[in-house]
């Protein structure tokens, strides 16, 4: 696999997501940027069985965006893959438009209605349990935020996934270390994340960087082959990644970039492609 091409793809999709948020003048910039490379690894890394032409394909794998506010990143990918027309991105968060502020099931390619934190991972557990009950060979992937781990329901889900030995479930934590009110460590410390999941009975795969798509694809491939227990990939990321002035800035959690900021960042992201 040509991972340099995927880096370029992620940069292009960052522009699409930022543009959609900019046009809406509303949306989660920092979070969409921190999870983009993880989503690119999932959707372009050959690890997930999906077909944009057949969104309801009976043997497809499932993806649940438990951190639903990362929706613009996922929407950019689904549009790029052809689940829906790319022009829908221009109407993100607008009245009567398809693309809601947080993912809803009626959008082609979206499997679970999320946005209320903590619920998506439980839904992923439910899908994985139903797959097991039907004796099918399908995987369920869920992306969580690190702030989201403060929701008690996440740990209820973690307990259930281990109890039912859901080895068809792979969770990925977008560990960007920031939330709306400040650093996670200051608002409500979630560390140590890996130890907690391990104690709950999960296999933990810690990454060096959640922005290294090759490392992500290898980890996801490994996670799919873990038997008799669920796996969590803890992916250290940078909130606002790819937007230098927004990186690691709490203030860019839920705001759109201005016209001037877009003019500054778009050439930089286009340059990622050029360097390849």
């Amino acid at each position: 696999m040509d991972f340099a091409t995927l880096d370029k793809k992620a940069a292009t999709l960052r522009i699409d997501a930022l543009t959609a948020i900019h046009k809406a003048n509303s949306g989660h910039t920092g979070s969409s940027m921190s999870c983009m490379d993880i989503l690119v690894a999932l959707y372009y890394g050959g690890v997930m069985r999906i077909d944009p032409k057949k969104p309801q394909m009976p043997d497809r794998d499932y993806f649940v965006l438990s951190k639903g506010h990362g929706a613009p990143a996922l929407y950019a990918i689904l549009a790029d893959l052809g689940f829906f027309d790319k022009s829908e991105l221009d109407h993100l968060r607008q009245a009567s438009a398809l693309l809601q502020g947080h993912p809803v099931i009626k959008i082609p390619g979206i499997e679970a209605t999320t946005g209320s934190l903590g619920q998506g991972i439980s839904m992923a557990v439910g899908i994985a349990l139903a797959i097991k009950a039907d004796r099918e060979d399908r995987d369920v992937f869920a992306l969580l935020g690190d702030g989201e781990l403060q929701e008690g329901q996440v740990w209820e889900a973690a307990m259930a996934a281990a109890h039912y030995r859901l080895d068809n479930l792979v969770a990925i934590v977008d560990h960007n270390k920031l939330q709306i009110d400040g650093p996670c460590s200051g608002v409500m410390n979630v560390a140590p994340i890996a130890d907690k999941f391990e104690a709950f009975g999960w296999k933990v795969i810690p990454l060096v960087s959640g922005h290294n798509i090759e490392e992500l694809v290898l980890a996801i491939t490994k996670a799919k082959n873990i038997a008799r227990q669920p796996t969590v990939i803890v992916a250290p990321t940078v909130k606002g990644k790819g937007v230098p002035f927004a990186e690691n800035k709490v203030s860019y959690h839920g705001v759109a970039l201005s016209e001037a900021e877009m003019a500054e960042v778009v050439p930089l992201l286009q340059g990622v492609g050029d360097r390849v």
Binding site: Y62, A112, A124, G126, I127, A128, L129, E156
Partner: peptide, 14 residues
């Protein structure tokens, strides 16, 4: 809470 969301996931799977 987990039970309700797990039920939702099962319903997603038909």
């Amino acid at each position: 809470q987990n039970m309700m969301s797990i039920a939702a996931g099962m319903a997603i799977k038909g």
